[in-house]
Write a protein that binds this DNA or RNA. Structure first.
Lengths: 226, 226
DNA sequence: CGCTTGTTTGAAGTACATCAACTAGGGTGG
DNA sequence: CCACCCTAGTTGATGTACTTCAAACAAGCG
């Protein structure tokens, strides 16, 4: 891991995020001022569960995975963050400890904001607080969706759902590229990699063609009712 | 369902909540001013998924269950709220629609706060925003815990966890009363009622005695390593 | 006492995990 | 350019945890 200062392109990425773009200008400056950047290899661990943490991370490139460990050493993903997503906002307002292990799932670059500064800004400026509130509500909804999916859907249904969520409405056929390894998708969906593989082959009968990371949907209807 | 004004004891309950007690006095008044109360029979539906919703609910007594429906009509609980908990905070800052079905799981009384008012206060007063931020982070952590439990633990382990979470630290043996029907606990843990029942009987071998709603722990050690 | 509702138990089925073997790409070094 | 290796992914066989359906049982409450 190497730690650096923000480049101007890093700044540009940050300022374009939904979260940042809603902040008042002075708050933007204040946050960026103390920010640093770090680069990580795949499988690097950024934090371990319960580590004290006084940064909020922003993924600038790559992929960061949050997972918890079972007593038997098994890993369960609780979230996967892509470019532009914020990590560790919850911890900032709770006990300031990581609620999960944080790991780079591929070579990644993350910005590190100072939680203390962000907390202070939120306490002084309702605009900042507002942006955080919206972000947290969005996270909350995602989590609820995820729990409901886990409890209601079978593996092929979860995969179908994922595919459909990347498929613009109103299109009958479509194709896109997975933004990460299949094993990461498996973790995100709460499946073993083998189960994901089998789910894909089940969906082939409903017009889903998978070649490498490219997924092609031939019959949207069939997928939706799966 | 009957709608009423707040009684003074309702006001007292609300003002004692962690959330309310952190609010500045004028904000408390402003919120209580527009609040109403409604009573519900068991199984009453308060909202259906996607209903527009412009209240935040507070459970004053009883139990309120949030669940989503699968395509086949199966129900999956996403949260269960007891006395003193707030419902619908996420929706307030998103699209203002219910993210799940909301149902009284037993005869219940809920206060209804005006989301518009609360939103306005949060936009004007960082104290209010702060209280909401902490609340949402807490919700977020709960959701993450829940997802991780679902993915890492077997049914008996989840039940053991639940029991331990109600067992004061440092006590070797202990007993407490379930705050709701077993079928509700089953839903909360993502299990069929039968699975919960079987989990209890598995745990009997580890010193858990269940009589009606009363649960007795004879050997905390055994439970912890389950 | 009998009815309703909640819980337990049993038997059968299903979905997913796990383990192991095999296959396909994607570099690397010769 | 090919042989090799390493990793990611697939496929098969087996085990297991939970669901589902059905029936027995218990507990309130009229």
């Amino acid at each position: 891991m190497k730690t650096l200062r923000l480049t101007s392109s890093d700044r540009a990425i940050l300022l374009n995020l939904r979260f940042f773009s809603r902040l008042p200008r002075p708050a933007q400056e204040a946050i960026l001022e103390g920010a640093t950047v770090s680069t990580h290899e795949a499988h690097d661990t950024l934090f371990r569960q319960d580590d004290p943490i006084d940064n909020v991370l922003v993924v600038l490139s790559g992929l960061v995975r949050l997972y918890r460990l079972g007593k038997d050493g098994r890993e369960a993903d609780v979230a996967v963050f892509q470019k532009g997503e914020l990590i560790g906002v919850n911890a900032m307002f709770l006990d300031r400890r990581a609620t999960a292990n944080v790991q780079a799932a591929e070579p990644s670059i993350v910005a590190r904001l100072e939680s203390a500064k962000l907390r202070q800004l939120a306490a002084e400026d309702t605009g900042v607080a507002q942006a955080l509130l919206e972000l947290l509500c969005h996270h909350g909804k995602m989590a609820e969706d995820c729990l409901a999916e886990d409890r209601l859907l079978t593996a092929p249904q979860r995969v179908a759902n994922y595919i459909l969520s990347h498929c613009p409405i109103g299109t009958e056929s479509f194709s896109f590229r997975l933004p990460f390894q299949k094993s990461v998708l498996a973790g995100k969906l709460g499946l073993a990699p083998e189960a994901l593989s089998r789910a894909f082959s089940t969906l082939r009968r409903s017009g889903v063609v998978v070649k490498g990371r490219v997924i092609e949907i031939r019959d949207r209807q069939a997928l939706e009712q799966f």
